[in-house]
Amino acid sequence: MTQHPPILYSFRRCPYAMRARMALWTAGIKVILREVKLADKPPALFEASEKGTVPVLVSFDSPVLEESIDIMRWALAQNDPEGWLAGDDAELIERNDGPFKHHLDRYKYPSRYADEADGTDHRAEGLVILSDLDARLSGQAQLCGETRSLADIALFPFIRQFANTDRAWFDAQPLPHLQSWLESHLASDLFKSVMPKYVPWKAGDQPTIFGP
């Protein structure tokens, strides 16, 4: 029996889903894309993953993957044409997914947190982390060398989100290397390839194939 491609539950603007899609695309892995409407999540998503957050990857030859970084590493283990795994910097990724994401959420959505006034304190804390990345990029084009790698793609969607919260403010900060780095990823064919808009999936819909 022919097996169909893995199923990816995704949401276009979610930074976790973005980085998973970019890794799958670079690895050359086609998936059945199920775009999720966050306000009306399909029951099939919860059947695949009780936590009900995207991305989730369901395949026939491996356990369900419920974390974006696991999807990235799984995809690149199948095929890593650009050598991204050489830049699997756990410390950078953990700082991004932990402290930076904490400050990003409270800067971007202060009204969701009872103890937050306007998020400016968290913006300042996020800037400290971004300043470290800017210094790191002062001597090299990407976070782990001269070519993009897993660390760059893992961090990029979150830095994009931080920058877009107040783009005029971000552009005025002394982050020349990080700003150039961000613009190069925003302009990349890879990013453009994974950002088309899709109609939210419903059971019974014809499958949408995503991939190069």
Rank of each mutant, 00 (worst) to 15 (best):
M1D: 03
P5K: 12
Y9W: 13
Y9S: 06
S10N: 02
S10Y: 04
S10R: 11
R12W: 09
R13G: 09
C14N: 12
P15G: 00
R19H: 01
R19G: 01
R34F: 10
K37H: 09
L38F: 06
L38P: 15
P42D: 05
P43H: 03
L45Q: 03
F46C: 05
F46A: 02
S49F: 02
K51H: 13
G52C: 06
V54F: 08
V56S: 04
S62I: 02
S62G: 14
P63E: 14
L65S: 14
E66Q: 14
I69S: 10
I71L: 07
M72Q: 06
W74R: 00
A75S: 14
A75K: 03
L76G: 06
Q78K: 14
N79E: 08
D80Q: 11
D80M: 08
E82K: 15
E82A: 15
E82N: 15
G83A: 01
G83D: 05
G87D: 03
D89T: 07
D89F: 06
L92M: 10
I93K: 04
P99S: 05
H102A: 13
H103C: 13
Y107W: 12
R112D: 07
R112S: 02
Y113W: 12
A114Y: 00
G119Y: 03
L127W: 09
V128E: 12
I129T: 03
I129C: 00
D134E: 13
D134F: 01
R136M: 07
G139D: 13
G139Y: 03
E146N: 15
S149I: 02
L150G: 06
D152S: 12
L155C: 01
P157F: 10
Q161E: 11
Q161G: 02
F162V: 11
F162D: 00
F162M: 07
F162P: 08
N164V: 05
N164G: 12
T165S: 07
R167A: 09
F170V: 06
D171S: 15
A172K: 11
P174C: 04
P176G: 01
E183D: 14
E183F: 13
H185W: 14
A187F: 09
L190W: 10
V194S: 07
K197S: 09
Y198W: 11
